[in-house]
Amino acid sequence: MSTNAKNTNPELLEVTNLVKYFPIKGGLLQRTVAQVKAVDDISFSVKQGETLGLVGESGCGKTTIGRTVLRLTPATRGSVRFQGKDVFKASVSEMKAMRKDMQIIFQDPYSSLDPRMPVGESIGEGLLVHGMSDTKKRNEIVIEMLRKVGLEDYHARRYPHEFSGGQRQRIGIARALALRPKFIVCDEPVSALDVSIQSQVLNILKDLQGEFGLTYLFIAHNLSVVEHISDRVGVMYLGKMVELTDRESLFRDPLHPYTKALLSAIPIPDPTVKRERMILQGEIPSPVNPPKGCRFHPRCPFAVDRCKVEEPQFKELRPGHFAACHVAEDQVAAGK
């Protein structure tokens, strides 16, 4: 499916004004003394069949988005609609039915599998939860899933510690797939893996997407990985979405200065190439006390006075190209 065709697809997941604050408790009475603003007012949508990449530095709230969208951590405010249904307002039984369609793949292949359970049982667990009590039928599906991710049927009886990291990650994928979900949150699925294994797992994910018509929310901090797999990419900084557009325009013509800095940091595997690097000064500020105005302004080389006081709106500056930056907005308006 080409990117253009996917643009017309209906929206599978709609996130509106999602907010997630983690309270910091302290003092004698364990009162909330401060809040970590992990995700602060983010809206986006994921279309049927596409892969939306989500990038940003560690601690910017990518993982929190993935988990709140699946209601694995309760959201503070905002709404998430999956196939038109409100995820946060669903009852227990509605939620259980919805969970069948939305799954997650974890970053750490070492903690995502129960060490005391044979992997076949872990893979078949979802089927059991959703009422397939016939062991024989379950085993058939488990074996089918293992084969799909490039493992063998006899691996089902083994325990997680008998597998390598890449193999475990593939088992994690098999578990997420066993229920034939429509939507999968891939929470940095390749970050913990060797580079040679990364492409292997990415290709499995791509193949399975084609085969089952999956929709991915792909969280990563590696832009090359995101470029490889995504149709559209969202860039996050300190709990905010700063830019969101399709892959080509993001890599060819980024609008937000933070995206530009990230892109210039991608290593090029050619020692003869010299290029201008945009090196950001300072550290990422604490999400407990984010800077006023634009959150990026203390580190932004293009910041103007307005950036320090007024928070830029997340706007569609070009068709399908969203960004939150005063400078970029002015540039686009000036026709540059």
Binding site: L72, R99, Q103, S111, V129
Partner: peptide, 24 residues
Amino acid sequence: DYVTASRSLGMGDTSLILRHIMPN
């Protein structure tokens, strides 16, 4: 993560405690 994974599969509290937490 494996507890979160089982929760995302829709598993209830009781079976989660008995199947994953207690053995560990």
